[in-house]
Simulated assay, not measured.
Amino acid sequence: MHAWEAIDGALDFIEEHLQEDISTEALAQSAGLSPFYFQRLFKRLTGRPVLEYVKMRRLAMAASVLADREKRILDVAVEYGFSSHAAFTRAFKEAYGISPEEYRKDWPMLNTCDKPELSMRYQLVDEGVPLIAGDIVLEIERRRLAVPEAYLGMETAVEMKRQVPAGESTGIDVPGQLWKSFHEKKPSVDGLAPDGPEMGMSHMADPEAGTFLYFAGALAEGDAEAAGMEVNTKSKAAEASTLVKRELPVGEYLVCRIEAETFEKLVTIALDQAGKYLFGTWLPAHGLTTLPFSAEKYYRSNESDLYMEVWVMPLPLQD
């Protein structure tokens, strides 16, 4: 057994017993490791100490259960191992920046700590060969875009430390909130292609400010500016109600196609895991990096064939 497989088994055990007492010693014993080496290996592979990881997974599950308004917050807290309403509120606010009451009132989208898919780090697939890991399927291939694609949407600045990488820095999901705002506005937007894809774009990073711009929008039909919309094309964060036009430019791309069982899982857990695999494993192993830009294309015209694609422009690593 490889060392990562022992930790992967411990992660499965944690998922099955989140509502029970979990000790480091018991996990180490199940993995066949001493507590000392188990804790070191666990933190190395997950990025968190054992008990902190357990707490963050409990908070993630508790956040999903809070959607049931029939359950009292205290009952949710006790169900996931918190000794009191106050202890749960304190931990929830430290993780997400808001209290459980505030979360239940406004339902903002959250970056939560998801169970990592460790096997993906140790599997290297060729271009055009699907990789199946956990509940997702991904495939990487090269494509050339010969004609630019125009999208209409909304844009905002995002703090890098709060969003990258997703799941490791928990809190309000700013891109997710932008998508909510765009979907509320989308029915009233003219000039969008019927059943066309939607696109999320991360670009124009500002290292000094510690931010990047995130765009959320949908494919425009023909010339977006000729569609009669007031479009702002300036290279800065737009006001929440202002539409902006962005283009997926002509060029050579690496495209990572991702499939999952549900759209919710596709745009959260699957996207996070695929991004870590693409940028943390696949690209470095092939001596590649990318331009400081990435696009996520979402396809929802057929509910029985849910998938998305991550588009990046590759560069040799030495450049």
Rank of each mutant, 00 (worst) to 15 (best):
L291V: 11
Y103W: 13
S64G: 14
L41E: 10
S84E: 04
R48C: 11
E79H: 13
P187R: 07
Y80C: 04
G134S: 09
E149G: 08
L131V: 07
G32M: 01
Q177G: 15
Y103H: 14
G217I: 02
G251Y: 07
L254Q: 02
N111A: 09
D305P: 00
E20A: 13
S64R: 15
K55R: 15
K71I: 10
D190H: 15
E247S: 13
G275H: 03
Y253I: 04
K43D: 11
T89F: 08
Y53I: 02
W107R: 15
T89N: 14
S301M: 08
E247L: 12
D206T: 07
F279A: 03
K43L: 10
E25C: 05
A260T: 03
M201L: 15
G196P: 01
R143Q: 14
E102G: 12
S119Y: 09
M1W: 09
A60K: 05
P100D: 02
A150V: 08
V267F: 03
Y214M: 08
M229T: 11
P284K: 08
I22K: 05
G191S: 07
R121A: 11
T89D: 13
D75V: 04
G171Q: 00
A209D: 08
E5W: 10
G171D: 04
L254D: 00
E5I: 07
L192E: 01
Y37C: 11
V125K: 08
Y37P: 01
A238D: 08
P249W: 01
E117G: 06
G191K: 06
S30D: 06
D173Y: 09
S84H: 06
M308S: 12
V137D: 07
G217Q: 00
K276V: 07
L283V: 02
P314T: 08
K180S: 12
D12L: 10
L213K: 00
Y53T: 06
A224I: 02
T290D: 00
L45C: 00
E127V: 00
S294P: 02
P165E: 01
Q123V: 15
S181L: 14
Q19K: 15
E184C: 08
V50A: 07
E149S: 12
P207A: 06
F215C: 01
L288E: 04
E264N: 09
A237I: 02
P165V: 02
E252P: 00
L192F: 06
L254H: 01
P284N: 09
I7K: 05
Q273F: 06
S235W: 04
A26F: 09
A157D: 01
W107E: 13
